[in-house]
């Protein structure tokens, strides 16, 4: 009962936040609504006893990805009037995409009435089995190679992103940190003996 109430509360917030992402005029507000949407879906996952996935969703998407999103959005000077110019021209395409998605969702939700069968409900997890441990056991045994492959793909993406931004510009000057750190007192300071009485 309590869990059902929580589910509907979170679901309402989630749908509201998702609407906010699309409808808010201010891009920073939209990004913040997206943060709220991620956070609420993490709460829904916690209700489904998928605590590892829920916490990782907060850690990765809310804690890292959205921070960088906000970072970029805040630096942009978005001109809302300019954005709205193409609205009527692109509206049919947007409506088509939205219509297809609605049909898909309705199909999945009502799949039973359309003649399909749903799989059996998964059994409730046993309290003694740790969610994290179970995921780790599968990930590092059965799926060890695909898991590492995914890691390598991500690494390649990171390296590629860094390489793309590295270009030589004329007149580019760089600090040699090692040389800066290696500086000693003798290189910079010269002690001059000055006779206070002013004699040469």
């Amino acid at each position: 009962m309590f869990v059902t109430l929580l589910f509907y509360a979170f679901a309402t917030v989630l749908v509201g936040a998702a609407l906010g992402v699309v409808l808010s005029r201010n891009p920073v507000h939209a990004a913040l609504f997206l943060v709220l949407a991620f956070f609420t879906s993490a709460a829904l996952w916690l209700l489904l006893e998928a605590e590892f996935l829920g916490i990782v969703l907060v850690l990765v998407y809310v804690g890292a990805v959205m921070v960088l999103f906000l970072f970029v959005v805040m630096m942009l000077d978005v001109n809302v009037a300019q954005l709205r110019e193409g609205l009527t021209r692109h509206a049919p395409l947007g409506a088509l995409v939205a219509g297809i998605m609605i049909v898909e969702i309705v199909y999945v939700v009502w799949v039973r009435e359309l003649g399909g069968t749903l799989g059996p409900m998964p059994a409730a997890s046993v309290a003694s089995v740790s969610n994290t441990k179970a995921l780790g056991a599968v990930l590092y045994t059965d799926y060890a190679l695909p898991f590492q492959l995914a890691a390598v793909v991500l690494l390649v993406a990171i390296v590629a992103a860094i390489v793309l931004t590295m270009r030589k510009r004329p007149g580019y000057r760089q600090q040699d940190i090692a040389a800066q750190v290696a500086v000693r007192r003798e290189d910079r300071v010269r002690i001059v003996k000055v006779d206070p009485a002013g004699r040469p």
Binding site: I55, V58, V67
Partner: peptide
């Protein structure tokens, strides 16, 4: 006494930055 305690800490400490970003913006 939750099993994913360390992850919970990492997730929540990473949220602290939102207060600062929001305040600044």
């Amino acid at each position: 006494d939750i099993d994913a305690g360390l992850l919970y800490i990492l997730a929540l400490t990473s949220l602290g930055v939102y207060g600062i970003i929001l305040a600044g913006w």
